[in-house]
Design a protein around this nucleic acid. Structure first.
Length: 282
DNA sequence: GACAGTGTTTAATT
DNA sequence: CAATTAAACACTGT
């Protein structure tokens, strides 16, 4: 589930798995996973993907960095940007083991493991850039990182202005980078604000609560997801860990009212009508 | 077989 | 100009 916390977990995995390890082979299962820009379209593939990744062989990478939902990594004089799209995640396997289903790209390391980028839906990709431009390209078109560079109440109010519903604005990566459909809904719940309330109608106290709720939501999600299951890919089956997301019709854990759901800007949005009592303007 | 889904961009429309 | 909607990308899970 690649929103900011999931990408941060992937960053930590990649850092742990590749620290001080040279890449001995790049396994390009799906050449279309390497794109000219961070695009969700496989048709934006780079024609010379294999050549562009060839300099990675023999090199040890720097510690990967993250901005919002993007990763940046420098290996062998190549800057790599990565986006995880809807379904990408990293899996570690031993070299020679069966290639994971839907693996797109693998980095084989000198300890006999492979870090695989697995992405069924193929919206995720890697984009090679000049190393000197990496930090710029990583942030390009993005607002501040919602976890590392959290905005205070005044900053949020200034960034998320206008008539847009709050939850839609929270997902606007150009204003604040990192929140997606799940964590935006959860942050609204934590701040006790209805997701459809226009930004212009959020009261001062609401911005204060949001400024706390956003980093807290993200921090707790990272902690919960940063497991030690490095060698075993654990499917995301199991109980729904969220307070409102995916709980339409269920009783709110806080007040017992039925969680509601409604489409907003094309995405299903969940909220508690009691705990988040702010109403849309009819 | 139908449908929804963690993301993003683009075009068309209101 | 602001905002929404639809479509596209491609595949899994229910």
């Amino acid at each position: 589930m690649p929103e900011l916390p999931e990408v941060e977990v992937a960053r930590r995995q990649l850092a742990r798995w590749t620290a001080d390890r040279a890449i001995v082979r790049v396994l390009l299962q799906d050449p279309a996973a390497v794109r000219a820009t961070l695009s969700s379209r496989p048709s934006d593939r780079l024609a010379d993907a294999a050549e562009r990744l060839a300099p990675l062989v023999g090199a040890v990478g720097t510690e990967p960095v993250r901005h919002g939902k993007r990763l940046g990594w420098v290996v062998g004089g190549v800057g790599l940007l990565a986006h995880f799209g809807m379904t990408a995640h990293l899996v570690r396997r031993r070299a020679g083991d069966e290639v994971p289903d839907l693996a797109r790209l693998g980095f084989e390391l000198d300890d006999g493991t492979v870090a695989w980028f697995v992405d069924g839906r193929r919206f995720g990709c890697f984009t090679p850039v000049e190393p000197g431009e990496l930090s710029l390209r990583l942030r390009e078109g993005c607002g501040p990182d919602a976890l590392r560079e959290p905005l205070d109440a005044a900053g949020l109010r200034a960034a998320l202005k206008g008539r847009r519903p709050l939850k839609v604005a929270l997902m606007d990566q150009t204003k604040l980078a990192g929140l997606g459909n799940i964590h935006a809904a959860e942050a609204c719940f934590r701040a006790r604000i209805g997701p459809s309330l226009p930004c212009a109608e959020v009261p001062a106290a609401g911005w204060e609560r949001l400024a706390e709720a956003i980093p807290r939501q993200l921090r707790e999600a990272v902690e919960a997801e940063d497991s030690d299951a490095d060698l075993v890919y654990v499917n995301l089956g199991g109980p729904n860990p969220f307070a409102v997301y995916g709980r339409g019709g269920e009783p709110c854990g806080t007040c017992g009212a039925a969680i509601r759901s409604e489409e907003m800007a094309g995405r299903t949005t969940y909220w508690c009508p009691t705990c988040q009592a702010t109403e849309p303007p009819a």
